[in-house]
Design a protein around this nucleic acid. Structure first.
Lengths: 203, 203
DNA sequence: CTGTTAACGGAACTGTGGTTCCTTTAAGCT
DNA sequence: AGCTTAAAGGAACCACAGTTCCGTTAACAG
């Protein structure tokens, strides 16, 4: 066999899948801090040496988990109305964040990103993908003349999510459906006012 | 002396001050995760037993640090114009978050809040205080008829900060002055459109 | 099918974050 | 000023996350 060849087949892939699965379970249960790689190995029914060798640290493991999560995409809405599309997005984010499993997982990976550059890189890529997925809603609204030409689609999508993440991570206010709807309406109102066009600034 | 009396005077207060100072230095240098209470004790020139006894865990120490931080208030702007006031707030937040020391400290305490209920409680109280400090800007704008009657002042202030924290913690986009101005303008536009009044909902 | 070796796994080892125990210092009452 | 004891400090101790070592399994080339 060629020296130095990589062997991604069968066993290796199986181990990776089992470990990532176990890692997300453990993250959900204990959170990023109290995470023990030996515990992950036990859950995955894998030698702990393997986990330490392939991922090294908790942050490295989370980075890989995020790369994996970025691959599964969630379909965006297309209702023909900006506010409806944004509301759908806001409610999707809201439901994700309050879901016991998913919410805990997102909190954990965001924490990981603040601790490790690789995890941060993976997180930013993950959100770049998600934002790009929903941006067409905004572009279509521009085409329908609901929004001014030149509106930065990504910025509008970010504006929808921001208040929900702020509540989750910073202020501790409830992340409920009313908050989601307000986030969507706020982003839509600001976009209509031309806040997200390159040529804004004076009011 | 009365049995069970607390002694907050002299030495105890001096130790607390030294430890909190050392803790923020250490948080800024290493971040929440790689924080070692023995290291904090060394910096504070205090026995590590003392730190473990009084604060117990990293999260407990951060919670106390936050309680301390909540006491020093930052004065709000009062320019006579909503957008100017909100812009001042946004730029203050922006400058705080990009400041190497303060930014690192805020990231660290937010992380601590996701790991420990006491730290979370302290963080939420901290932001409640900050938001309440700036809410009068919005109330005044309502009185000047810049905004609809019934506008939720706290919600407007939150809407200003949210995009900045989202960038810092989640998307990784730059937290620059342009982002701050857009955050302020977005919040103002949404508020004018009546998004933050109890009787919103239809568009 | 066989041989090579990348990748996995178990067990023993180690370093350090955290605890315990006991002594010393000084806050605060009379 | 003197006495009591809350609170700080030092040092030995402990547990366990993370590492090292080496033997075992199985991916893949021929």
């Amino acid at each position: 066999m060629t020296v130095g060849a990589i062997r991604p087949g069968g066993r290796t892939a199986r181990v990776r899948a089992a470990v990532l699965r176990a890692a997300s379970d453990a993250l959900i249960e204990h959170g990023f801090d109290r995470l023990d790689l030996a515990d992950v190995a036990r859950r995955a029914e894998v030698g702990k040496t393997t986990v330490y060798r392939r991922w090294g640290t908790v942050a490295g493991l989370v980075a890989d988990l995020l790369a994996d999560m970025a691959e599964q995409s969630s379909p965006r809405a297309d209702t023909g109305s900006l506010i409806e599309d944004l509301r759908a997005n806001a409610r999707l984010v809201q439901r994700t964040l309050v879901d016991p499993r998913q919410g805990a997982l997102f909190r954990a990976v965001i924490v990981a990103a603040t601790c490790d550059p690789r995890a941060a890189e993976a997180l930013h890529r993950f959100y770049a993908v998600r934002i790009a997925e929903w941006a067409p809603c905004v572009d279509q609204a521009v085409q329908r003349a609901e929004l001014p030409v030149g509106t930065d689609a990504a910025e509008v999508i970010r504006a929808v999510s921001a208040p929900l993440y702020y509540r989750l991570l910073v202020s501790g206010d409830p992340v409920d459906e009313a908050a989601a709807d307000r986030a969507a309406e706020g982003a839509a109102a600001a976009a209509r006012a031309g806040v997200y066009t390159p040529t804004n600034g004076r009011n």
